[in-house]
Amino acid sequence: KLPPGWEKRMFANGTVYYFNHITNASQFERPSG
């Protein structure tokens, strides 16, 4: 399970990334916590 605010998303080319809808942060590494 991801930390609060984070969700797993995917680009059109299939690349997975993680987006935080609270802070609008995005990253390729899975957030810890």
Rank of each mutant, 00 (worst) to 15 (best):
K1N: 14
K1V: 14
K1D: 15
K1H: 13
K1W: 13
L2W: 04
L2D: 06
L2P: 11
L2Y: 05
L2E: 06
L2G: 02
L2S: 02
L2R: 01
P3Y: 03
P3C: 05
P3V: 02
P3K: 03
P3A: 06
P3F: 02
P3W: 04
P3N: 04
P3S: 04
P4I: 11
P4R: 07
P4N: 10
P4W: 12
P4S: 10
P4H: 12
P4D: 11
P4F: 13
P4Q: 10
P4A: 11
P4G: 08
P4V: 09
G5A: 06
G5D: 08
G5K: 02
G5F: 09
G5H: 11
G5W: 06
G5V: 04
G5M: 05
G5T: 03
G5P: 11
G5Y: 08
W6L: 00
W6P: 00
W6Y: 01
W6D: 01
W6A: 00
W6E: 01
W6R: 00
W6H: 00
W6V: 01
E7R: 04
E7A: 05
E7H: 07
E7G: 02
E7Y: 03
E7S: 07
E7I: 08
E7V: 10
E7D: 06
E7Q: 07
K8F: 09
K8A: 12
K8G: 05
K8T: 10
K8N: 04
K8H: 07
K8R: 11
K8S: 08
R9Q: 06
R9F: 08
R9M: 11
R9A: 05
R9W: 04
R9D: 03
R9Y: 08
R9P: 02
R9G: 05
R9T: 06
R9I: 09
R9K: 12
M10W: 12
M10Y: 14
M10Q: 14
M10K: 10
M10R: 09
M10T: 14
M10F: 14
F11K: 11
F11Q: 15
F11R: 09
F11Y: 15
F11P: 05
F11V: 06
F11A: 14
F11C: 06
F11S: 15
F11E: 14
F11G: 13
F11M: 15
F11N: 15
A12H: 09
A12N: 10
A12I: 07
A12L: 10
A12R: 08
A12W: 08
A12P: 15
A12C: 08
A12Y: 06
A12V: 09
A12G: 09
N13E: 07
N13V: 03
N13R: 01
N13S: 08
N13L: 02
N13P: 03
N13T: 06
N13Y: 02
N13I: 02
G14W: 03
G14E: 03
G14D: 03
G14T: 02
G14R: 02
T15H: 08
T15F: 09
T15Q: 14
T15W: 07
T15I: 13
T15N: 07
T15D: 11
T15L: 11
T15V: 13
T15E: 12
T15G: 09
T15M: 12
V16D: 04
V16P: 08
V16N: 03
V16I: 14
V16E: 10
V16Q: 06
Y17K: 03
Y17T: 02
Y17L: 06
Y17I: 09
Y17P: 01
Y17E: 05
Y17Q: 04
Y17M: 06
Y18A: 00
Y18L: 00
Y18F: 08
Y18R: 00
Y18K: 00
Y18V: 00
Y18W: 08
Y18H: 00
Y18T: 00
Y18D: 00
Y18P: 01
F19N: 01
F19G: 01
F19I: 07
F19M: 03
F19W: 09
F19D: 01
F19Q: 02
F19A: 02
N20R: 00
N20G: 01
N20I: 02
N20F: 03
N20K: 01
H21G: 07
H21N: 13
H21W: 13
H21R: 11
H21T: 15
H21S: 14
H21Q: 10
H21Y: 15
H21K: 12
H21P: 10
I22R: 06
I22D: 09
I22Y: 12
I22V: 11
I22Q: 09
I22F: 12
I22G: 06
T23S: 07
T23P: 00
T23H: 04
T23D: 06
T23N: 07
T23L: 07
T23Y: 06
T23I: 05
T23V: 04
T23F: 05
T23G: 02
T23K: 04
N24S: 10
N24M: 13
N24T: 06
N24A: 09
N24W: 07
N24D: 06
N24E: 09
N24I: 05
N24K: 12
A25Q: 15
A25N: 09
A25E: 15
A25V: 15
A25I: 14
A25P: 00
A25D: 10
A25K: 13
S26I: 15
S26H: 11
S26A: 12
S26N: 07
S26D: 04
S26M: 15
S26T: 15
Q27L: 06
Q27S: 09
Q27A: 07
Q27V: 08
Q27M: 07
Q27I: 08
Q27T: 11
Q27N: 04
Q27H: 05
F28Q: 08
F28D: 07
F28H: 08
F28T: 11
F28W: 11
F28V: 12
F28P: 07
F28I: 12
F28R: 09
F28M: 12
F28Y: 12
E29K: 06
E29S: 07
E29H: 10
E29N: 09
E29A: 08
E29T: 10
E29Q: 10
E29L: 07
E29G: 07
R30I: 13
R30Q: 09
R30D: 11
R30M: 12
R30V: 12
R30L: 12
R30H: 14
R30K: 11
R30N: 10
R30E: 11
R30S: 09
P31S: 00
P31A: 01
P31I: 01
P31Y: 01
P31H: 01
P31T: 00
P31M: 00
S32T: 14
S32A: 12
S32R: 10
S32V: 13
S32L: 13
S32D: 14
S32Y: 13
S32N: 12
S32W: 12
G33P: 12
G33H: 13
G33A: 13
G33F: 15
G33Q: 12
G33I: 14
G33M: 14
G33Y: 14
G33D: 13
G33E: 14
